[in-house]
Amino acid sequence: MFRVISKVKLATQITKLEIEAPLIARKAQAGQFVVLVSDEKGERIPLTLADWDGSKGTITLIFQEVGFTTSKLSAKEAGDWIEHILGPLGHPTEIRNIGRIICIGGGVGIAEVYPITRAFRKAANEVIGIIGARSRELLILEKEMRQVCNELYISTDDGSYGRRGFVTEVLKEILNTDKTLVKLVYAVGPVIMMRAVSEVTRPLEIKTLVSLNPIMVDATGMCGACRCTVGGEVKFACVDGPDFDAHQVNFQELEKRINQFKTQEQIIRDIP
């Protein structure tokens, strides 16, 4: 059992939980995730680590209410318990000093790109951040991202804050001015966003990494639910990833597989 230390509502339907999990906190690295079971009859869902504090023994999870389990999780308060948390899982993001890097986060993906952005900056890279959301109310971690980026750009779909439009438009503009200096683009967010980013950088031949979050059950390499096609080969996102070369990922297949249980999700959410 893992105790919730604090809870903050970051935006409509986006919640931040700080949870006591000393073993995970001590080992966590940027890019890794956990799998958790919220309650006794709950399912196992993967969530990327948004932050951790080894000395305090806590981890931070930020998630959007998109399904049954995330809704139940968002109802947890400080002092409540989470049945099971396993982690840290997956390969950490490879952090090296490579020069200028663009880190992109879309929606709740900002929480996932934040520790990676911080790690790249710590490794003395020049980091440009681009974060985007549907509207101003849904934009999270602006202050935190500003602290770890050399420059930060913001976009909202409805233009209520920053520039109007998608993160890819900001990305295109930056790349139009000095694309030769950008060594890596790292993007986390909805599949449609990661795919769009990948299409922007592909013709420019800029190395692009994405963090994939398909359906998982055990998340230790045993069930194969998270399999995706990368460079024509089948990979398990849980143990081979979650970071992959965006230009090799079959996003179309990923998008279909992610929606595999849509009907069942609706059934369980409709139960009063």
Binding site: K41, E43, T69, V217, C223, Q264, I267, I268
Partner: peptide, 20 residues
């Protein structure tokens, strides 16, 4: 098998793990 045995998907939605 993991969905059905470990996660008890055969008792969905009492248990939250689905099988489709």
């Amino acid at each position: 098998l993991t969905r059905v045995n470990l996660m008890k998907a055969y008792r969905f939605p009492e248990y939250a793990t689905p099988i489709n």
